[in-house]
Write a protein that binds this DNA or RNA. Structure first.
Lengths: 253, 253
DNA sequence: CGTGCTTTTGAAAATCATCAAGTATAGTGG
DNA sequence: CCACTATACTTGATGATTTTCAAAAGCACG
């Protein structure tokens, strides 16, 4: 797709990782792939890794580019998407800290990734990590687990895109966001897990749910007038009735 | 979802595989997971496998059931799908001979599988195959490859479901079917790879493409009047202009 | 405190779904 | 082998959800 991936990745900070110091302390280690490598071998992981800062809005994986790297997100959120020549876009997921990126690729990436907010990522050379898999079966095992759980999410999303109404899509999305913030040990726990913050724009939500911005906005205001959610501001949503939202999301009502 | 998976699986023939004889001769071996196990160890694979015949229309994986097995298709085609309580259905894929099934599951299957035609499958106990992965890294490696390529397909399908028009969906579907029959070394090669046979009904196509039966039918007749395809009969489609179909599928024209 | 972008809201248009027949096709039994 | 029935597919008319086009309101940033 793009002639040069260098045009896309212009990290403001690139830090080659030094053995055992950085990785062992990484706060993402407990939840990421890296925990499949024992402490004493972390230097081998660090040897194929580079920690990078990515400014908000910047792309760091371009659809169609040669898939030379894997990424592990250590800070910030990314949108992952596929595009059509005329600009239509389908966001296939949002990637939070701890997410491993790059499995959905053959020789070339099948998707693009852009920073929603300022990000930090660990970038692994593909060849390097694949070599590591030969010595650490646990690493490959973990990647298979990750791929399988992404497959489950992908199928859920296909059901949403192919068969759910706009209202059901929004309900599903908000609940998934709510579950996400309550699950993540690092995220702040809000009152009753009900306040959801959305780091992405309405355009991103629309492209994720297969709708238009206007339909997303209209559907949210409808959910508000139905007293199912409250909208303190455009990027905060209070799930007033998670039970009924769940029923809507599942198409039962 | 279902109380008992036994109610679903009523194979007419169950053949416990005997060491080295069956697997080594299996015509699917060259293209399936099984080729990651060396010939001399095939008895260990056979020890956790059962070959089963499944009559047309019968389900053999039920969404929500405990994920006790993996499957490898050796004959016939299956539809894989997710359902909503009110009966809405999203087919996530069609599985041809050589396909490995069961990765998109955690403790429970996230999808269901039914035979489109009379099928033969090799059923592996999950625990058994997972134990084998510990001894044969190549097996786990192959499964990761499979999971990754399914992830790519899943993302392609999300773009289709979220952003493509009915016409674009049908064009994409027909071309994918065409590519499939020309790729598979076992499938008969038709003139110029242009004649596609569809083992599934219009309802299945509709549920795969996120449309209704009527829209599928109407869109196909429109493609026919546009001289892009011919319809010798309802389940055979001749791709008269693959180039233009490709452009339509990609949204360029 | 503008200026520009995002979000919301409104009106009109379109694609696709639903409802409803009608026509093939396939499988069954006489 | 042929009628008969059931199912699958096609076609038509209508309708609804969602999109498109358009503009106002709200926020954020300089």
């Amino acid at each position: 797709m793009s002639q040069s991936s260098m045009a896309v990745v212009r990290p403001s900070v690139v830090v080659p990782l030094r053995p055992t110091t950085v990785c062992a302390k990484c706060e993402q280690r407990t939840i990421s792939v890296c925990n499949s490598i024992p402490d004493e071998d972390l230097h081998r992981l660090a040897a194929v890794a580079v920690n990078m800062a990515i400014p908000a809005g910047q792309g760091f994986i371009e659809e169609g580019d040669s898939a030379g790297f894997f990424y592990n997100i250590t800070g910030g959120t990314a949108r992952l998407f596929k595009s059509m020549p005329d600009g239509r876009r389908q966001i296939t997921g949002f990637a939070a800290p701890g997410t491993f990126l790059g499995l959905a690729a053959q020789a070339h990436y099948g998707f693009a990734a852009e920073a929603l907010e300022p990000m930090r990522v660990c970038r692994f050379s593909r060849a390097g990590l694949e070599a590591l898999m030969e010595d650490f079966a646990a690493l490959e095992h973990r990647l298979l687990e990750i791929a399988c759980s992404e497959l489950v999410l992908a199928q859920d999303h296909m059901l949403l895109l192919g068969r759910k109404t706009a209202r059901e899509r929004l309900a599903s999305f908000l609940l998934a966001r709510g579950a996400m913030s309550s699950d993540c040990p690092l995220a702040p726990r809000f009152n009753q897990h009900r306040l959801v913050t959305l780091p992405m724009s309405r355009a991103d939500i629309a492209d994720y749910l297969g709708l238009t911005i206007e339909t997303v906005s209209r559907t949210l205001t409808k959910l508000k007038t139905d007293r199912l959610i409250a909208l303190p501001d455009a990027h905060s949503i209070d799930l007033l009735d998670p039970t009924r939202l769940k029923m809507i999301a599942d198409g039962e009502f």
